[in-house]
Amino acid sequence: MIKLLGVSKYYQNKFDKTYILRNINLEIKEGEFVSIMGPSGAGKSTLLYIIGMLDSASEGEYYFLDEQVHKMKEKRLTELHKSHIGFVFQQYHLIDELTVYENIETPLLYQKVSGSERKGKVAELLDRFNMVAKKDLFPNQLSGGQQQLAAIARAIISKPKLILADEPTGNLHSDQGKEIMQLLKKLNDEGTTIIQVTHSEENAKYGNRIIKLSDGWIEKE
């Protein structure tokens, strides 16, 4: 599904380059649950964003579903990422001005899904996540766990093949964290590929593969 060949990311300063990622070679198959680990500043998030097409590599090749992402135009990139990839963030990143319902609905708007179909899909997810009562609340009226639930609901509403999670439990206390991890595990069991960035060994156990990054290099698997 995902194939990175010699991917590097650096920032050009006046005289030298500051590398974030160095020569990453990586292949991830459909259905995997991968955890990316490593110390702060190792390049974990950057790798995740490059995979999620929100950032681009400075050099190297990137294939997503056998398409050459590194050569793609912006429009096609947006197309690809909006139909196949869902994001979950440590800070949830719900839109403050929209209610839970509207937040979950937003990706469908960008995919031009019809009104009635949207209603059905959002209702189904609210039901599944036990959030029907909370649907008209704004993000700041929810607990952290509930916000993350809503964010995951939003990430999976358009049934993406891949979910990218950037420390999804980082801001949650352990009970809520567990609940979220179990949910991700369940999604993985249903066939969704998941890549998460995490500091926690415990969370990494939910997955079936661990990639360790250090100073921009992949250490070992």
């Binding site: 999620g52 929100l54 912006e74 429009k75 947006t78 990422h81 909006k82 139909s83 994001f87 990143h93 719900l94 839109i95 403050d96 001005e97 937003t106 990706p107 960008y110 995919q111 939003r154 358009s158």
Partner: peptide
Amino acid sequence: AKEVGVRKTLGSDRSK
């Protein structure tokens, strides 16, 4: 800015 970022990850392109 956050709204812009989130919307972009949700699949909005720049023109939208």
